[in-house]
């Protein structure tokens, strides 16, 4: 079972310096958050999708489409319910509130997809190195990448445990929410314990490989800014600066939205 989002492909995006990739992701976030109107957010989404297509990482959408779909529908409904506007639309929801819900849900999905593209094109080690080069202490960067690494590991453990418990007759799929929650105890206890145990070995292995032995360390992974990095950053700025100008001109908002 493949446990990482990272896709080992040799595209122009994969070859970028990790700092560029981090900045591209941050740029995508800013661009997404500038506007509220779904039509405008959709433009940001389009840019992110083009980025994903160029890096051949959209195949990972298959792995997270369910989360995206759930967040999109739930987000649209909830945000729409908790805001209002002058134009009636469906039931208690006004047109402006609906646009607001849609816009916010799109924002969340766009940012998740931008994050997915980043993780699909950047190795764990590159993330750490990029952060270190941007001034983040190595230990902090390493801790963050460890957290990222832990998610798939825990997933794999839970998968094994759920098979063991299903073999003993545990039926995880029936009953109401509370019953089902209770049924998860046989999964949670062993998952928690084996995670602690493997984290312990991980800690020992780190120490045993001289983690933090010297104040500075070599980086075997070689990174550096090349022409492509400058081109990508220029494109990003070329989109972001006009975007900020339009935002300053109060464009991309939802007129008449009163409560949020």
């Amino acid at each position: 079972m493949d446990t990482y989002l990272y896709l080992d492909r040799n595209t122009i995006v994969h070859r970028l310096d990790p700092r560029t990739k981090i900045m591209l992701m941050a740029g995508s976030f800013v661009m997404t958050l500038l506007f509220m109107h779904p039509a405008w957010v959709a433009m940001a989404l389009a840019v992110v999708l083009i980025h994903g297509a160029v890096s051949k990482s959209l195949s990972n959408l298959k792995r997270i489409w369910w989360i995206l779909f759930m967040l999109f529908t739930m987000g649209t409904i909830l945000w729409a319910l908790f805001s209002s506007g002058p134009t009636p639309f469906v039931g208690p929801i006004e047109w402006e509130a609906f646009l607001f819900g849609l816009g916010n849900a799109l924002r969340i999905d766009t940012m998740i997809i931008a994050g997915m593209v980043f993780l699909s094109t950047t190795r764990n080690e590159e993330i750490v190195l990029g952060m270190v080069k941007m001034g983040v202490p190595y230990r902090f960067g390493f801790a963050l990448s460890t957290a990222l690494r832990l998610v798939p590991t825990i997933n794999a453990t839970v998968y094994t445990i759920s098979q063991a418990q299903r073999s003993r007759g545990l039926d995880l799929d029936s009953g109401n929410a509370i019953v089902r929650l209770k049924k998860n105890i046989p999964l949670v206890v062993p998952a928690f314990l084996s995670t602690i145990r493997s984290t312990n070995v991980f800690g020992m292995a780190l120490d045993s490989k001289g983690f933090g032995a010297r104040p500075t360390r070599t980086n075997y992974l070689r990174v550096g800014f090349k022409t492509a990095d400058w081109v990508f950053l220029a494109i990003m700025l070329g989109l972001l600066i006009p975007g900020i100008y339009l935002w300053a001109c109060k464009l991309g908002r939802i007129p008449g939205l009163t409560k949020f």
Binding site: R123, V201, F202, M204, R217, T218, Y220
Partner: peptide
């Protein structure tokens, strides 16, 4: 260690092997 799963944490084989000497600031 006995548990080889828990002591491997890099995304490719070369980086895994490089991790130790990296920590000791060995030249590239």
């Amino acid at each position: 260690f006995q548990d080889f799963e828990a002591q491997l944490f890099s995304t490719n084989v070369a980086l895994e092997v490089a991790f130790g000497p990296e920590n000791f600031n060995v030249p590239w």
